[in-house]
Amino acid sequence: MPRRTEAHLAARRRQIIDAARTCFLRKGFQATSMQEVIEEAGLSVGAVYRYFSGKEEIVLAVAEDATDRVIAAFVRFAADPAAAPLLEAIDQALAYAEAETGPGGAFPLALEVWAGAARDPGLHKLMAARYAPMRATFVTLARRARDRGELAPDADVGAVGAALFALVPGWAVQHTLTGEPDRRTVVAGLRALIM
């Protein structure tokens, strides 16, 4: 039997994660069975279990994959050397979140992850670790805003960054569940608070 390449192994793993994501978006973590993931992936039972020991491990992989996308987007906002003023940067973060609130986006799945993290220690640990780099990007935005005079010179950038980061998933939850408020309203409210 020929040896499988790393690319082949990664593609199979990706196939299973994508299938599980589809199932979880359709029915949620709790209501999805391993059999449904296996059928969605189009693989044999043995093939799926070769990559994952069970549903808990797949849930962690799907959560990690989803948060990787969000972290990468937020890091891009903070890494931009010609960073936009703070309110524009927050509007960009909210625009990204808005795009991810639709079908197949990260935030409908995030609701599942957050609910699961309240009960599952492994998922809780993963999310706690993943939130640190996300929050750090908003601290970077706050530091730049303070250095440019957009915030008071003595502003606690750690506190401002934490508040700004909390705003994004908080708004995304509201938007995912109710469709409102729109992001322009949130930015206008933030502008009124900062000015």
Rank of each mutant, 00 (worst) to 15 (best):
P2A: 15
L9S: 11
A19M: 01
A20R: 04
R21C: 01
L25F: 03
K27C: 06
S33H: 06
S33T: 15
I38G: 00
E39Y: 09
E40W: 12
A41G: 08
L43E: 14
V45D: 15
R50C: 02
R50D: 09
R50E: 11
Y51E: 15
S53H: 14
E57I: 03
E57C: 03
A61E: 08
V62F: 07
I71M: 07
I71T: 10
F74Q: 03
F74H: 07
A78S: 13
A79E: 15
P81M: 01
A82T: 10
P85N: 05
L86Q: 01
E88F: 04
A89Q: 09
A95Q: 12
A95M: 06
Y96Q: 02
A97S: 06
E98V: 07
T101M: 05
P103R: 10
P103V: 09
G105L: 07
W114Y: 10
G116Q: 04
A118L: 10
D120V: 03
G122A: 08
L126I: 10
A128T: 13
T140C: 07
E150N: 10
G158Q: 15
F165S: 01
W171Q: 05
Q174M: 12
Q174Y: 09
H175T: 04
H175W: 08
D182Y: 12
D182H: 15
R183N: 03
R183I: 04
